[in-house]
Simulated scan of single mutants.
Amino acid sequence: MYQPKTAVIYYSSTGNVHRLAEAAIEGAEKAGAETRLRKVRELAPEAAISASDAWSAHVEATTDVPTAEVEDLVWADVVIFGAPTRYGNVPSQFQQFLDLTGPVWAAGKLADKVYSAFTSSQTLHGGQESTLLSLYTTMYHWGGIVVPPGFTDPITFQSGNPYGASHVSGGGDFPGEIDLEAARYQANRAVDMAAALAKGFSPAAM
């Protein structure tokens, strides 16, 4: 049985995106994928981190999560990115990770993979769509196959974001079950799409 290798690579300062990433891993594994959960390297100064109890607590709580490397992108058949919104774009930590991919992109090692993304913001529509679109633009440059959830399942109608799973932290400090289920579904769909493409027939025929 084909098991698409799936990397969920995320950045999270206070834990919301981390929990969505864990849910995405759950969805990918349910679809039969071999998975890697990786966090993007923290670049913020210690003074900024220690000034926030939630931020410093999350950094301490996730010391066991391996740091994302470009090799994780090369390894994967499916890549799912998770990043909070910063002024309608990804945080600098995540952008720095993307900026390291030039050599493997130039070698064609990021093309023809299935990609998807999810996000979290302080307020509803507080830059969620533009953050996800900026991530998808990078995937287009790589020659990736972008697979958003779309309105393809009832959970997406409940979550309200066809671009990707999302969470509004202003509406609660932790992703709710709808947010988590949307992340599970999104990852499941991406893995199913990769498996269908590997078999050489239309996913609609599955």
Rank of each mutant, 00 (worst) to 15 (best):
P4A: 09
A7H: 02
N16M: 04
A23L: 00
G27P: 03
A28W: 00
A31G: 06
L37H: 01
S50V: 09
A51D: 11
A54L: 09
A57H: 08
D64F: 03
V65S: 04
A68N: 06
E69Y: 01
E71Y: 13
D72R: 02
V74D: 07
W75T: 00
V79I: 08
P84Y: 02
R86C: 08
Y87K: 14
Y87V: 10
V90I: 14
Q93M: 13
F94C: 06
Q95F: 12
Q96W: 10
G102L: 11
P103T: 11
L110I: 12
T119D: 12
S120F: 07
T123V: 12
L124D: 13
L124A: 14
G127A: 08
S130K: 15
L133E: 06
Y136K: 10
T138L: 15
T138P: 09
Y140S: 13
W142V: 06
G144P: 03
I145H: 04
V147A: 09
V147I: 11
T152R: 15
T156C: 14
N161F: 13
S166A: 08
H167A: 08
F174W: 12
P175W: 02
E177D: 10
D179F: 05
A187H: 03
N188T: 07
N188W: 02
A195C: 08
A196K: 00
A198R: 15
S202W: 15
S202M: 11
